[in-house]
Amino acid sequence: MERPLLNDPNLPPDTVVLKKTLGRSHAAYEALAAGASGAGLEMSWRYYNDGKAWLCKVTHKKKTVFWLSVWDGLFKIGFHFTEKTRTGVAELDIDANIKSTFARAQAVGKLVSLGLDVRKKSQVRDVLTLAEYKKSLK
């Protein structure tokens, strides 16, 4: 089974580590970090023993907005919505493929997950649009 990179608990993901691991996708990560900061989101990296990897939790005040994990040449974004809030995603100005994939997603428990693989800066706008929507939810 594939798993995220950044597996060394003694090697926190700083700029050098992220640049090396993400390669060409690092520019997209930098654009996301700048956009997240401008939107009042806080990015905090932590090593999680259960997954044996560093993950970035992106929050607004105390609410978790999305999770970020680093893979070979890309980063994955994970949003979690409820059945009640999933309908709003269809009305956002984001890529139609994201909407159709999410429309088919099955709920697990009370949550419906939306995962995005981000490789290019052009994809960051959709992530930030989804983050703004998630931030606005009660």
Rank of each mutant, 00 (worst) to 15 (best):
F81H: 05
T101L: 12
T85Q: 05
A105S: 13
L68G: 00
L41W: 00
S100L: 08
A96Q: 13
K121P: 14
W54E: 03
H80M: 12
D95T: 04
K120A: 12
Y47N: 06
L41A: 05
S44R: 15
A107I: 10
A103Y: 07
S69V: 06
R104G: 07
K120Y: 11
K61L: 13
N97A: 09
T82L: 09
L116E: 02
T85D: 07
I77Y: 00
H80L: 10
F75T: 03
S69K: 09
N49A: 15
E42K: 13
W67C: 01
A107F: 07
L68E: 00
L74Q: 08
L68K: 00
G73S: 09
N49G: 15
G115N: 11
A107W: 07
A53H: 15
R104T: 10
E83H: 15
G88L: 03
F81G: 06
G51T: 14
Y48A: 13
V65C: 01
V70N: 02
T101F: 08
C56Q: 01
T82W: 02
K84N: 11
N49M: 12
V65T: 04
I77R: 00
T59L: 03
K57W: 01
L116R: 01
L68C: 06
W54G: 04
V65M: 00
T82E: 07
Y48N: 14
C56S: 08
K99D: 06
K84F: 05
E42G: 10
R119N: 09
R86P: 06
C56E: 01
E83C: 09
I77T: 07
V89M: 05
F75C: 02
I77K: 00
L111T: 10
M43Q: 10
D117H: 14
A107Y: 08
V108S: 15
K84I: 09
A103P: 01
I94A: 01
L92M: 09
L92A: 02
F75H: 01
D50G: 10
S44D: 13
Y48M: 13
G78P: 00
T82A: 04
S69W: 04
W45L: 01
W45I: 00
N97V: 03
V118E: 03
G73Q: 03
A105Y: 02
G73E: 04
D117N: 15
V118Y: 02
